[in-house]
Nucleic acid binder design. Structure first.
Lengths: 251, 251
DNA sequence: TTGAGTAAGACTCAGGTTGAGTAAGACTTA
DNA sequence: TAAGTCTTACTCAACCTGAGTCTTACTCAA
């Protein structure tokens, strides 16, 4: 039965009311670690627990609701700072709506995944004072089913790194191959062979293009100045950068 | 802002009410063609148009709602026939909730993807009399944003065939490699090299396992009796069966 | 019954991609 | 200045790929 025939034959008020929210899994890399944006809960249920940022959907698209929530939580709502959000990659993750996931009422939550190059620490004193970046391995015991949502988001992020140029959303407009490799290492949680990574990135058409420039200085502990690149126009990587196979992913 | 702080600070009734539905993109293969289950709309809006089956979410999980809708539309609700639904693969596709996607009220729809080996034609006289299987290339001008939902579902199906043993959900419990190849050909819309496909399927650990049996007869127009296989225990295919690269997928 | 056509499945081969390793040279800090 | 780090380029063997050939087993129609 589709929406229309339902509406013709049933009274929507015969069913319990449902609320629709968005929750955002916002990821960034800080100090070489993959971090997620969390908010501190002050009220029951789950008072004292941390949760993913989110909120009710208003008269706006779901995408707009997710972007608005992220902007509010990071404090990036005003003019200049809001421009940083332009470089954030946004995509819908999946929807969570089991009865009982919120103890108070039926809430269907559309989860989003956001990848940010380097958003500032939410500033104290603002609306966003209760939000902060947490390394993903420390993000446990979240409120509601947010542990599951975070886990699903991380899995999606790791997958998309293989087939899409998503990693370029985590670095600045100009970056070195080494910086890009550190993104993969942080998200996948394992080191990559620098030489092979270099070869593969440059062999994928449209992944990166040279700026002709060179980094201002070498690495922190030595090494030559690396060449600078910017994101190319590819939307899919071919061939893909497959992560080292793990048998436990297969069965 | 998360759900709890919203609920504490705002009155949900201050926002327009939102209804939550599920829509199902149910795919099967009939006569070598990929087909989708559609229902005929008798009422405005979109009277005379076809639509994806779907309906309101009740006191059940989203997954249960999608399964229930599919069962109702196909008429597979009673004892024995309902068993056929056990072999249907189900997964959430994505959620569509733009204001205005339904002209009457704000409706957020969680779309599901279903893959069925060979569900019967919905029988006339039942509740499902207005539902039927349509080859996907003939499924145009659907109601609401269902063209988009179908397109997204097809893209997902084509992708998942590469990395997962999903194709086995389209065939019987016992099948030949050739039948499996025809599934790939139907979903991807292109012929595959029989020898290479054979080699690759058998080389992927856990994709298929031999039954030791042989098909009762050869192909319709000749050829030897093929060996029979059943689905293995792999959940991811490694190495993947990548479809022939198309440049237009990349940029 | 036989011959033509079809398909399953095993094989070959050239070309490309892979992970692993080596090496030269540019740069850092101590 | 010395020791260590890092980018980048290279080599190599192993593997995977698409394209094609071949044998054998079967169906169908004459």
């Amino acid at each position: 039965m589709d929406e229309a025939s339902f509406l013709a034959g049933y009274d929507p008020r015969a069913y319990p009311s449902v609320a629709v929210t968005v929750d955002v899994v916002a990821l960034t890399i800080r100090d070489g670690k993959l971090c997620v944006l969390l908010v501190e809960r002050g009220e029951q249920p789950f008072a004292g627990h941390r949760a993913l940022p989110g909120g009710f959907v208003r008269e706006e698209t779901l995408d707009e609701a997710a972007l608005r929530e992220l902007a509010e939580e990071t404090g990036l709502t005003s003019g200049e700072a809001a421009g940083e959000l332009d470089r954030v990659h946004f995509e819908q993750l999946r929807t969570y709506g089991n009865p009982g996931r919120d103890p108070r009422m039926r809430i269907v939550s559309v989860a989003y995944l956001a990848f940010a190059p380097h958003l500032p620490e939410p500033t104290a004193g603002s609306d966003a004072a209760h939000a902060y970046w947490v390394p993903v391995e420390e993000a446990k015991d979240l409120a509601f089913d947010h542990d599951q949502i975070l886990a699903d988001g991380l899995e999606r992020a790791r997958d998309k790194l293989e087939y899409t140029p998503l990693a370029t959303a985590f670095v600045g407009t100009d970056f070195t191959i080494s910086e890009l490799r550190q993104v993969y290492a942080a998200v996948w949680g394992e080191e990559l062979h620098a030489g092979n990574f270099h070869r593969k990135v440059l062999s994928v058409p449209g992944f990166v293009e040279s700026t002709g420039e060179t980094a201002a200085r070498g690495g922190e502990r030595g090494g030559p100045k690396a060449k600078l690149y910017r994101a190319g126009d590819a939307r899919l990587l071919h061939p893909a950068l497959l992560r080292p196979t793990r048998e436990d992913r297969v069965r």
